[in-house]
């Protein structure tokens, strides 16, 4: 019960971080003064963390603190992704060093970028649809139903009713009538194609290029396949 009067809990707050681009304090003072003049009340007693990440020469930590407090900020501490020794030095000098998640974030950002790059190359190196496996659905896709073959071709053994939607990252084959919507190459695959035994679709789309029924007149009601030729949809007789 000894510590019932107090309780320590971690919380997250939004703190302003002042990034210093130079260690010439005269310049910093001049720019700070200009900034604060624009909205003096806004900065009054605002807690501030100073990032020293961009400073590479010797730093006068005490001078920076004094300067900050001169402008009526509440000085919290220093931050930035700096060497372990420098962090230790700051602590030894009696200032707090605020660790940010920034080190991790930037690392994560790099990873994300890499994985995106990886994915992009994966898509780029997968131009032939035969690299996709097939998702096979037996039976009719009824009005209101939706089926998505993620990263696959979609094979429907049956008809696709009006008001139904079939989507695939690869090709779409309908062994029956296509009366609903068919969206092939949904994640960007310009070589995707749509095949059906009877073209009466509400909409067909390949890699974001779409046709409504009125554009399908040429092969309406007959077996057809649709592909993308120079960013234009074209339909051809299937048999």
């Amino acid at each position: 019960m000894a510590d019932a009067s107090i309780e320590f809990k971690g919380s997250s707050f939004t703190l302003s971080v002042l990034h210093l681009n130079t260690s010439i304090l005269a310049d910093v003072r001049a720019d700070l003064a200009k900034k604060i003049a624009q909205a003096p009340d806004f900065f009054y007693l605002v807690p501030v963390v100073v990032s020293i990440e961009k400073l590479d020469c010797a730093i006068d930590y005490q001078a920076i603190k004094t300067l900050i407090e001169e402008f009526k900020f509440t000085f919290v501490g220093f931050t930035g992704s700096v060497a372990k020794e420098q962090r230790q030095l700051i602590r030894e000098l009696g200032f707090s060093f605020v660790n940010t998640a920034k080190v991790n974030t930037s690392a994560k950002a790099v990873i994300t970028k890499e994985s995106i790059a990886e994915k992009t190359t994966a898509i780029a190196t997968k131009p032939e649809s035969d690299l996709y496996t097939d998702k096979v659905h037996r039976g009719q896709i009824r009005s209101g139903q939706q089926i998505y073959a993620k990263g696959q071709n979609l094979v429907i053994i049956g008809s696709v009713s009006a008001g139904a939607e079939v989507i695939a990252d690869g090709n779409i084959h309908v062994y029956g009538s296509l009366r609903g919507r068919a969206i092939a190459g949904a994640k960007g695959h310009h070589k995707a194609q749509i095949y059906c035994q009877n073209l009466e679709a509400e909409l067909v789309s390949i890699n974001g290029n779409y046709w409504l029924s009125e554009s399908m007149e040429q092969h309406w009601g007959s077996p057809a396949f649709i592909q993308l030729t120079d960013s234009e949809l074209t339909s051809s007789k299937l048999i």
Partner: peptide
Amino acid sequence: VRDSDRILGMLAS
């Protein structure tokens, strides 16, 4: 006919 088609989908699911 379209509404019946929808109901058939419901029957199946």
